[in-house]
Amino acid sequence: MASRYEIRLSGSGGQGLILLGIILGETASIYENKNAVQSQSYGPEARGGMSKSDVIISDDEIDYPKAYNVDFLLALTQQSFDRYTKEVKKGGIVLYDSTLVHSPKEGDYRLIGLPLHETAVRDIGKSMVINIVSLGAIVKISNIVTIENTEKALLKRVPKGTEELNKKAFYAGVSLAK
C-alpha cells in the first residue's frame, strides 16, 4: 500500500470512537512500521453529540492530518451517516450499524450494514464495546492492518482485567464481517 488511506470514524459521543482511532493508529505505526495520524473534533460535539475521529494510514509521509477524501467511513448514527457520506470517495466503503442507522442512502460507495450495536449488547453483554466490535469489522473489511497486529495493539491499550472481554468483542466484529 503506497498511498494514503483515510478512515473516518463517526457516531455519537460515548461510543469510544477516539479510542478506536488510537488503536488503529497504534497498530499501523507501532506494529506495522507504517505512518499514521489520528485527530478528532473537540468541544461540545465530543460531549454526547456528534463525534468523529479521523485516522490516516500510509507508507509515505502523511501531510494533511484530516480525512477529506475518505476511503472508509464508519457511521454509527443516522446523523453521522448523513453528514459524512458526502466526503467518501468514489468506490470507498461505508460501514454502518444496521440498527442505529435506519435509512442508509445508496451512493458511489460500497455500502455494508452490520449489527455492530446488537452484537455488542447480545453477544458481549455491554453496549460500550461497540467500538471494539467495529474495530474487528473495519480491520477485516479494509485489510488495512492485520488482525494479529490489531489484537496486539488492542490488548496493550485496554484496561487490565478487560482483555478477554475486548478480545471477544474484537473477534465478534471480525466474524460479522466474514
Binding site: A36, Q38, S39, Y42, I62
Partner: peptide, 9 residues
C-alpha cells in the same frame, strides 16, 4: 491546536 492535539507516530 492541530499539531498539539493530533496523534502521530
Amino acid at each position: 491546536e492541530i499539531i498539539g492535539h493530533m496523534r502521530e507516530k
